[in-house]
Computed example of a mutant assay.
Amino acid sequence: MEKLAEDLRMEILLRLPDFKSILRCKCLSKSWYSLISSPKFTDLHFQRSSSQHAHRFLYTNPPERIRSIDINASFNDHSATIELDFPLIKPYTDINIITSCRGFLLLMLVKDQLLFLWNPTTGLHKQISNPPLPWVPTISYGFCYDESVDDYLVVAFNFNDPSWLESFVIFSLRTNSWQKLTISDSYQLPKITIPFPVKSGSFLNGSIHWLISCCDPPQVEAKIIALDITTKDLREIPGPPDDDDNCMNYDLGVLGGFLTITSYYKHNSLGEVKIWRMREYGVKSSWTKLISLSGQRKISYILPLCFTKDGEILAVDSGIGLSKWSDGSGNLLEYLEFWGRPHKSWVQYTETIHSLPLTASFLST
Rank of each mutant, 00 (worst) to 15 (best):
Leu4Phe: 10
Gln127Glu: 12
Asp18Pro: 03
Ser184Gly: 12
Trp32Gln: 04
Thr288Ser: 15
Leu105Phe: 12
Leu211Trp: 01
Phe168Asn: 01
Ala226Ser: 15
Asp244Trp: 01
Leu303Thr: 06
Arg341Lys: 14
Ser364Lys: 14
Ile71Trp: 02
Leu211Ile: 08
Thr308Tyr: 07
Tyr187Arg: 13
His354Trp: 13
Val149Thr: 13
Thr288Ile: 11
Leu363Pro: 00
Asn246Val: 04
Leu117Asp: 01
Cys27Val: 09
Trp135Gly: 00
Asp43Ser: 14
Met10Lys: 14
Arg235Val: 06
Pro62Asp: 12
Trp178Ser: 04
Ile192Cys: 11
Asp216Val: 14
Asp7Leu: 10
Phe159Ile: 02
Ala222Asp: 10
Gly256Thr: 09
Lys40Val: 10
Phe75Cys: 12
Asn72Trp: 07
Leu173Val: 14
Gly321Thr: 08
Met278Cys: 08
Lys289Met: 15
Ser186Pro: 00
Asp94Ser: 10
Ser68Met: 09
Thr230Tyr: 07
Phe46Ile: 00
Ala222Arg: 00
Thr193Cys: 12
Ser74Asp: 10
Trp346Glu: 11
Ser323Phe: 02
Gly103Tyr: 13
Leu270Ser: 05
Lys3Ile: 10
Asp244Tyr: 00
Tyr59Ile: 02
Cys214Ser: 12
Gly321Tyr: 03
Asp161Asn: 15
Gln127Trp: 03
Leu211Phe: 00
Asp151Thr: 06
Thr193Asp: 14
Cys214Pro: 00
Arg67Asn: 11
Arg67Cys: 13
Thr365Asn: 09
Pro217Glu: 11
Pro195Tyr: 10
Gly257Ala: 06
Gly142Trp: 01
Phe41Gln: 04
Lys3Met: 07
Ser34Asp: 13
Leu189Tyr: 03
Lys344Met: 09
Pro17Ile: 06
Arg9Ile: 11
Asp245Arg: 07
Pro131Gly: 03
Arg102Trp: 05
Trp135Met: 03
Leu332Gln: 10
Pro357Thr: 09
Asp185Cys: 07
Val149Leu: 02
Glu272Phe: 01
Ser51Asn: 12
Gly282Tyr: 09
Leu16Lys: 09
Asp185Ala: 06
Tyr264Phe: 15
Ser269Val: 13
Val155Cys: 05
Ile320His: 12
Asp245Ala: 10
Leu114Arg: 13
Thr350Trp: 04
Ile66Ser: 01
Arg15Leu: 07
Ile291Val: 15
Phe196Trp: 11
Thr365Met: 08
Gly340Gln: 15
Pro62Met: 07
Asp317Gly: 01
His53Ser: 11
Val155Met: 06
Glu351Leu: 10
Asp150Asn: 15
Leu234Trp: 04
Cys306Pro: 02
Cys215Thr: 09
Ser286Phe: 11
Thr288Asp: 09
Lys26Phe: 11
Leu322Ser: 06
Tyr264Asp: 06
Ser364Val: 13
Ile237Gln: 02
Asp112Tyr: 11
Leu124Asp: 04
Glu64Gly: 00
Ile194Ser: 13
Gly340Ile: 07
Lys223His: 08
Gln219Gly: 00
Ser79Lys: 12
Ile36Cys: 07
Lys26Val: 08
Asp94Glu: 07
Ile302Arg: 02
Pro240Lys: 01
Tyr349Pro: 01
Gln348Met: 12
Leu336His: 08
